[in-house]
Design a protein around this nucleic acid. Structure first.
Lengths: 337, 337
DNA sequence: TTGAAAGCGCTAACAG
DNA sequence: CTGTTAGCGCTTTCAA
């Protein structure tokens, strides 16, 4: 007998564990057990319950289960933004692998301030997420260590929590070595800015190490940050002009800090009629779809995104605070010999 | 006194509404009221409670609230895939607008079979989502009408539920008119296949209507579906070759069913040394980032993605099953005069 | 193998 | 304006 709560007339009675119990003549507990530890039940009861479930088209209420157990399969994930193919692909892989283990992902993009990001994390906690996969760079390691929720950081500054980073040092080194091997005479690195404690900083170190005996330089331009924006395109154009002027007649080997920057570079070269890979070779980073979709597919350093996703999912199951390093690999395409 | 349930020793006692109540010397109800209808409380109580909340650093448990009220701010969203910029941008906008209203999004990509998709929807329901935003094409309108959860479909076949579609007919027409105006002599539409009941089919109708008095043709190739794949690139190359042969010396005006196809087309033209917009003009659809990131930014039909997102969010608040049509606009860039 | 009953943390009808 | 009380739908201890 409904006492309070209104219900729409059309609202077919929500069927829950209770209805199943009645229908199959067992107790609530038994039905619950059927759902969680079916082996404890006799074959006969199991069949009765299964029958009822099918007949009434029952499906479990996750919210109630989470409340009762304190455990959920929800996972939060916070990106700095979505429009970088590394992020899209990572999300894609996470949804794939995670889906197999029944994880569901609540996706956020990071806001500007620490307060806003913390409040997002609070909301996530209020949904009792099993963990949060963090890609944004707003919070410091100390901030993160304060949080009482399992954090899995990806390509971020480290701290005492689970981290997944690619082997950026080797990645940068591979790029440098390849460009030298291909006969480039001046080795350039183009980057949109960094902090020395970011994992991706090691790309630069690796690259610089490998080219230390050759003419080389590193160009930093924050204008490149928002890829394909007017500003970024102009910045790239100036950079290319300057390089042509500085190294006339020499074969340039250019390593970009990500595929989108590499793509902008290629675009500028095509417009200016510069030949690839004859006059300039380009290597990007991430081996993401843009590197394949470029006019001339761009040689890139592969971060093994699927593996990163896999590790992230597994870390959710058994959380061990430590750094996971995923190896980097050079994928040769048409912007190098 | 804990009777059952183990807790880690480190686990600081979960502080809930109850702790707040004790701390501030009021009843549970009053605290709950503070959270939901604060105006009903006296200023004094309000202050006491606020104080306790801050001191104990309390934050609400959404799961319990959902269970008690039957209402949540979770929203499901199912994409066919993520790697099309229309989707990425839509997700981005949804997260932005939705965030302002405290909605959180559980993101899925569609699986292959109807059963799998239905089971995803079931999972979503089990989290008591407020609604599901559907972009995938696997379920038929009839299937969708069966679901007892509010569905908001975007650019999908219609049915008796909330739909958001862009004005595809006008979009196609604008493209055709522009190409004619620019002096194109043969008008071509390239599409990767469609069903006549998809909203996007109307792009074709609109285009064909506008070019009906000119030489024109529509090319359908399912090989173009997976953009940038080997198959798609080859298919595009053949298409371009055939067109050049069929309309020698004539200026071609080509309208593509989406920006990615337009981008592949441009790429092929560049490789073959065809001049844009002199020898061929290209118009894409979606006005998504790829159209801007192309070597020569591609003129495109803008679907007003932010508006679509806004309407979707509002429909969540007040669900009214009907079709929302968002107007289309031509955005001229460098692939047309 | 099964069931009774006490929660999980919060809300809401009702009474004061 | 505030408190009592009965749930929301499911899990889990304890006892049988």
């Amino acid at each position: 007998m409904e006492k309070h709560r209104h219900r729409e007339v059309t609202d077919m009675d929500k069927i829950g564990i209770k209805e199943i119990a009645e229908r199959s003549g067992v107790s609530l507990t038994t039905v619950s057990r059927y759902l969680n530890k079916p082996d404890l039940l006799s074959k006969k009861t199991r069949e009765k319950i299964q029958f009822a479930i099918q007949e009434l088209n029952y499906s479990q209420d996750n919210v109630a289960r989470i409340l009762a157990t304190g455990k959920s399969n929800l996972v939060g994930i916070i990106f700095p933004q979505l429009h970088l193919s590394f992020y899209t692909e990572l999300l894609n892989q996470l949804i794939q692998y995670g889906g197999e283990k029944d994880y569901s992902f609540i996706v956020y993009t990071s806001r500007d301030t620490k307060e806003e990001e913390l409040s997002m994390i609070d909301t996530l906690k209020s949904y009792r997420v099993k963990g949060i996969i963090l890609l944004s760079h707003i919070l410091s390691p100390e901030d993160i260590e304060q949080l009482d929720v399992p954090i899995i950081s990806i390509e971020r500054t480290g701290g005492n929590y689970c981290q997944i980073n690619s082997d950026n040092y080797t990645g940068g080194k591979l790029a440098g070595e390849k460009l030298i091997e291909d006969g480039c005479e001046a080795l350039i690195h183009i980057n949109n800015g960094y902090y020395e404690d970011w994992p991706s900083f090691k790309r630069i170190i690796g690259f610089e190490f490998s080219v230390k005996n050759m003419p080389h330089e590193t160009i930093i331009s924050e204008d490149l940050t928002d890829p394909y924006s007017e500003i970024a395109l102009n910045a790239m154009s100036s950079i290319v002009d300057a390089l042509l002027k500085k190294y006339p007649g020499q074969k340039l080997g250019i390593f970009c800090s990500n595929d989108d920057i590499a793509n902008m570079l290629q675009r500028d070269c095509i417009r200016k009629g510069i030949k690839m890979p004859e006059d300039v070779e380009i290597i990007g980073y991430d081996n993401s779809p843009v590197s394949d979709n470029a006019i001339y597919p761009i040689t890139s350093i592969d971060q093994n995104i699927p593996l990163m996703a896999k590790i992230a999912i597994n870390s959710l199951d058994t959380y061990i605070p430590h750094e996971n390093v995923v190896s980097a690999k050079l994928i040769t395409k048409s912007t190098t010999i």
